[in-house]
Computed example of a mutant assay.
Amino acid sequence: MGSVRAVSVTAGVPNSLRLEDDHPEPATEEGAILVEALAVGICGTDHEIIAGEFGIAQPGTDSLVMGHESLGRVLEDPTGTLQPGDLVAGIVRHPDPVPCTNCAVGEWDMCRNGQYTEHGIKMLPGFARDRWRVQPRFAVGLDPALTDVGMLLEPTSVVAKAWDHIERIGHRAEWKPQTVLVTGAGPVGLLAALLASQRGLVVHVLDRATSGPKPELVAALGATYHAVPVNQLDIEPDIVIEATGAPRVVLDVMCKAAPTGIVCLAGVSSGGRTMDFDAGALNRALVLENNVVFGSVNANRRHWDLAAQALARADRAWLGSLITRRVPVSGYAEAYTPTSDDIKVVLDFTA
């Protein structure tokens, strides 16, 4: 073996993305399970890292190997947790070393001191390399039928956590939700709609796109697609999952939820924008209608397992339709250059 190809950046340096042909083999300290990479998914966090706005280098170097939406096949596992040939993804976040009260019980997605580490994002090498290693407790086995779409597990885990927390909050009282509004039809929004449809709920998805694959993907779930402002919708959703991060949309969905409604903010705003808004009216509505607004990000092992189950139940063709471009590693620069028609772009290590 000797060396691997790896897509990396110099952390904090804009436009330093590169393909290394002689990156060292993954160190055994990274984990006992050796994995051959099949693909990595690309998302907005990757674009922020490439722009130098985000990302922390691996200790002892100024570099960071990219890739946190992983999919691979087990080459060897001396622990017996998985078998050679098994399909596997690696959990992105690792608990902080203190550990805080949440990390100590496996809830690293709720880390209280911010000292967690993350593959391809913060201090841990990512999965965009020919081979990588993972510890058994951070290795998630996947249904063999997910070979072409298993890199969707990471964004699905984020959505599975959002649904887990929505349901926990909902059971504060008698709760029989019927209608869900998802704002944003990117990967997170569409996967949120998928999990809503799997729950038998009436699903509405709002996005700006009026052409392209998004309306058809929503319709294929049996959901209703909207391309109008939130305040023009003639629905009063029991649950809202906000996946755009657009400040206007964030504020509008808080006002749109039904009494005792739950609004989950899953999109991250860039900040720096101000607007006139009646905060008093919002406060009055939230209090008098017993509404809840909360933020959700990342996922722990329980959510990754729930996500794997959700993908195994989903229509494979529908999942495959989320992937709008598959690019070989040799075309890495093209893969990491977003286009307006993208939903999910995948860097293919098998091509």
Rank of each mutant, 00 (worst) to 15 (best):
A196D: 01
I235K: 07
L288Y: 12
Q232S: 15
C255R: 14
Y225H: 13
A196Y: 01
T274W: 00
V249L: 04
L221H: 06
E289I: 00
T274N: 03
A209S: 14
G280C: 00
A258P: 04
V263I: 15
A266K: 14
V228L: 13
C255Q: 14
L201S: 02
G261Q: 05
L251Y: 05
M254E: 10
V218K: 08
R208M: 14
A219Y: 03
S270E: 13
P213E: 11
R273H: 09
G280P: 00
D207Y: 08
T260H: 14
N231S: 15
V228F: 04
G212S: 09
P247G: 08
S270K: 13
G245T: 10
A258C: 03
D276C: 00
Q232I: 04
L288E: 11
I262N: 01
H226R: 09
G212Q: 06
P237F: 10
Q198R: 02
A285F: 06
M254D: 00
S197T: 14
G272F: 08
D278S: 07
F277T: 03
R284E: 07
I239D: 00
G271I: 05
R273G: 01
H226A: 07
P229E: 12
D234C: 08
E216A: 15
A279W: 13
S211T: 15
G280D: 08
P215G: 13
G212E: 09
G261K: 03
H226Q: 08
V253H: 01
P237M: 10
D238L: 11
V249P: 01
D278A: 11
G261D: 06
A279I: 14
V228S: 14
A223E: 01
H204L: 07
T244P: 09
L206Q: 15
I241E: 06
E236S: 15
G272N: 05
L217Y: 08
L221Q: 10
D278E: 12
D234Q: 15
T244Y: 09
G222Y: 05
R273T: 14
G280L: 11
V263G: 01
M275Y: 03
L251T: 02
T224Q: 14
P215I: 13
V249Q: 03
G245D: 07
P259R: 15
G280R: 10
N283L: 11
A279L: 15
V250N: 05
G222V: 04
L233A: 11
D276N: 03
Y225T: 07
E242A: 12
V230R: 08
R248M: 05
G272K: 07
V240D: 01
T210H: 13
R248V: 13
D252K: 02
L251Q: 08
F277I: 04
P213K: 10
P237Y: 10
P247S: 09
D252G: 02
P247K: 10
V230W: 09
V292A: 13
L206I: 03
T210D: 11
F277H: 11
D234R: 15
R199T: 02
V287R: 08
A246M: 04
I235W: 07
A246P: 00
A266R: 06
A227F: 06
G212K: 04
A227N: 15
V205A: 10
A257S: 13
N283M: 08
A285R: 14
A285Q: 13
K214M: 09
V240W: 03
G272H: 09
L221C: 07
R199M: 04
R208E: 12
N231Q: 15
Q198C: 05
V218D: 06
